[in-house]
Design a binder for these strands. Structure first.
Lengths: 138, 138
DNA sequence: TATTGACATGAAGCGCGCTTCATAGTTTAT
DNA sequence: ATAAACTATGAAGCGCGCTTCATGTCAATA
């Protein structure tokens, strides 16, 4: 059993965020002490980590909420969850290819700059030419 | 030379976004016709594409702005731009490892669901166990 | 000539994901 | 017993990246 602060420390989220997630029903209702204080169980913590994993993948709160609803409904929603997760994977893959493309271009840029730094003629290049040069391969 | 609408079509951004980028100085001032209409040159379009590449990498507007400032100042800011670009690359790489981690777990989840669908016993599993199971490897 | 449609501008608005605030009750340490 | 630290809540606020709105000018068409 963990206090709000402890749960926050463990997960790396703020207590405010934890409350926010609970309000938004990303997390099941956390049980309370006799006087209203939250008591996070290990299962709660695991649950929160699952949410964090989804947020890492930039899955919007809304979608996580939908998924969690199905999850709580349980067994008969398995196929739907399966489909959702498949969608998430597709989305992550898209994000990754976008990032990969950006990374490739940016690395080219870096190489280009490195060359330029070596050459004392680098002062000649104008900002107009730069992008074209590293984009279309010097 | 392209009209606002054409530039929007080419880049896939809205005219509003193009104006926004111009206001925010991500793009140099676009030249105008005798009566205030924007005329995007090919260079402008390329420039916009560079911005798009940076946005793809989730580089915030602010940072792009900083970079563009240096770019316009030109040659003597080369080292600074080099450093910035290096920072961008690091950032992209971080994003990618995060996504990769999320992807791995999500794929495990998918496999787990697939198994579960095959087994008629899948109705037994509760939402509490699920995450643990696919996370710690059934 | 009247209308449609592209363009311009500044200001306001919006959805997202939190964070902060104001207020108040509880627990712990000194 | 008093102060410091932790907790709770609802509401408001915030930064980001656009988008929409209200208003008006200009251009080409029917």
């Amino acid at each position: 059993m963990y206090s709000a602060k402890e749960a926050a420390e463990i997960t790396g989220l703020s207590t405010a965020t934890l409350r926010y997630y609970e309000r938004e029903k990303l997390i099941p209702q956390i049980t309370r002490t006799y006087q209203k204080y939250r008591q996070y169980t290990d299962t709660d913590i695991e649950w929160i980590k699952m949410i964090q994993c989804m947020r890492m993948a930039n899955i919007p709160i809304r979608s996580i909420k939908q998924y969690v609803e199905l999850l709580i409904q349980g067994g008969k929603t398995l196929k739907q969850r399966y489909d959702m997760v498949q969608g998430h994977i597709k989305d992550i893959e898209n994000q990754m290819t976008n990032l990969q493309n950006a990374l490739n271009l940016t690395q080219k840029k870096l190489v280009f700059y490195r060359e330029l730094i070596k050459e004392p003629s680098y002062k000649e290049i104008t900002y107009m030419e730069e992008w074209k040069m590293f984009k279309h391969g010097n």
